[in-house]
Design a protein around this nucleic acid. Structure first.
Lengths: 331, 331
DNA sequence: TCACGAAATGTTTCCGCTAACATATGGAGG
DNA sequence: CCTCCATATGTTAGCGGAAACATTTCGTGA
């Protein structure tokens, strides 16, 4: 910076101004300084900037990589991609973090913030409980939850997609097609998602005038687990006519089990997924599904976090993104 | 830090030593300082550390997110996960970067380094050409290529999996099973991968005593593109008896096209994939495939980069990881 | 012509930490 | 008992910037 200042014949503070608040400088000076910056190929040292103005223009994205769930892979990859791009646009940087076996979530998050590694965190921790969230909330660490906390009004920033509404739409769709025997191939119980899906489907069933049989089965979000369950379900005495899956990968297991049992989709059994990631393409016939547009989550979360870090005092983030149903040929 | 020093009754430099080189301190002093650190919940400011000792313990991982290739999704996600974990073990941090429309690769990489955002970069840029690599090489920016550069001896650090060997093994496998009419459903031409695969298969064919018919077709790494090609190929007059795919997603397209044409796998047509990501599970019958163990790439690359950043002068990295064949029931 | 305030630029200090050097302490050897 | 050296700790001076304050310049209106 001093070299630039010398070359431009100004003080180093003027160079700093040319970088951070060019409007304070006269056009002539600004031009001089900019030329010197170009000539010397000067780039400010972000560590020094961070130290001097005590703001950390970095966002941490926490992902529990350990669970090898395919749906998660797709989701997490898309998430990091969108957040990364959005950060870059604002001269922010994205850092990735994952669970550390010998450090609790809260401890880790606090540490990252105290060490000034990140200005704030985006958290995707399905297994973080209410107490932990509360503890983190009462610390100074800025964070946004990806996915709603289990406790309803915890005074925490979050973004989520409206999975309950998605499940409701999916169930309604089947009901409108005349189905009265519906199964939900749900996510594992420990995911809050599974509760949203069940409640959405149940509400739709209740709203329906006529009696509807509703079966719920929990599956891991893997092909193997889903297939096993679907085989049993289809072979059972009271096979449902319509199936709602938590995931498009699980929808594929319905297809496979149906093929094996010589059942046609959608004539003999209908399938609809409440979530569509990359598996969707492989399905035949074309899968009816709820489009969650989950890419938006990262954008909203990152945008909020950057405002917080830049002390723009954004209003609390309590966003539940809407979803929409895309009809294919599987129902 | 000063507060800790005061509480422990030592100088601030002693606190610094307690953090960075505890072996220099007497056990008694170290204990005192550590107690004070715990009491005050002190965490060193990494920006200040970085500034003072001029090393940046951050690694940047560059990914061209824009290309929506499914294989890439799996690969990139796995890559970032493994690198992230390995970094954490060494108190390093992983930052994610992606292509910026109004900045060239080389400019971006140089900037990130000059700004001291990262101490070095891990690059997955299929479209970076030899000239650009050379330019980056002659700058001070430490980097490791994920995947070999097109030009053979460019004096650059890289890690790759031995795709040529994988393709060779796959072809040999088919040849051993008696196939004499083989097709390679290859990756797009612009990926250096495609050349590796072709050369591997060709070599295997040549090594075979008898004449072998070999067809090569390039496909995008998407289900749609692969399916279209496979339908045509299977409907054509000279349908091959064995197919090698660049990807397990593409193997699924073979399955589908075969189903549609009422061909059995492996009796009528055999399939083997040279790369297995998450799609593998969905295949029926069980897919014979080359296991690249690509998760290792990130580990090797990160490990090397950390040594470079810590000035341990590691030997040049020219690693091509071995692969192995896993026989399923599709051949 | 001159005071006055806004605009433009310079000076000082500090952000939190570590490298380099300076100093104190203690034990071995003569 | 003193020298000498290794070990343990303290002191000083930056690392590369930006905030806060000081100073200069310049146009404006009385």
């Amino acid at each position: 910076m001093n070299d630039v200042a010398r070359l431009a014949g100004v003080s180093s503070q003027t160079v700093s101004r040319a970088v951070n608040s060019p409007n304070l400088l006269s056009p002539a000076t600004l031009a001089k300084v900019r030329r010197a910056i170009d000539l010397l190929d000067y780039h400010p040292n972000v560590a020094a900037q961070s130290l001097a103005n005590r703001t950390v223009k970095m966002i941490g994205l926490f992902m529990p990589f350990t669970q090898e769930q395919v749906k998660s892979n797709m989701f997490f990859h898309s998430l990091s991609a969108t957040v990364c791009q959005r950060c870059a646009q604002h001269d922010f940087v994205l850092q990735l973090f994952t669970a550390n076996p010998d450090e609790s979530y809260v401890r880790l998050f606090k540490r990252l913030y105290r060490e000034k590694r990140v200005g704030g965190l985006l958290l995707t921790c399905p297994s973080m409980n209410t107490k932990e969230i509360g503890e983190l909330r009462s610390s100074a660490v800025p964070f946004v939850l990806i996915g709603r906390p289990a406790a309803p009004d915890l005074d925490v920033d979050y973004v989520d997609v409206d999975n309950a509404a998605g499940a409701h739409m999916a169930a309604q769709h089947l009901l409108n097609k005349g189905h009265r025997d519906i199964a939900l191939l749900n996510a594992p119980k420990f995911m809050t998602l599974s509760e949203d899906l069940r409640s959405g489907v149940q509400r739709a069933c209740q709203e329906q005038g006529e009696p509807v049989r509703f079966t719920e089965i929990h599956s891991e979000l893997t092909y193997k687990s889903g297939l096993e369950i679907m085989r049993r379900l289809i072979a059972s005495d009271n096979r449902p006519t319509g199936i709602i899956t938590a995931d498009d990968l699980l929808a594929l297991t319905v297809k496979r089990a149906a093929d094996e049992a010589r059942l046609r989709i959608p004539e003999d059994i209908a399938v609809i997924s409440t979530f569509a990631s990359g598996w969707y393409d492989v399905m035949e016939p074309e899968l009816t599904h709820v489009d969650t547009g989950f890419e938006r989550i990262g954008i909203v979360a990152a945008e909020h976090m950057m405002k917080v870090i830049l002390k723009k005092n954004p209003p609390p983030l309590r966003t539940v993104l809407d979803v929409k149903l895309t009809e294919g040929k599987s129902t």
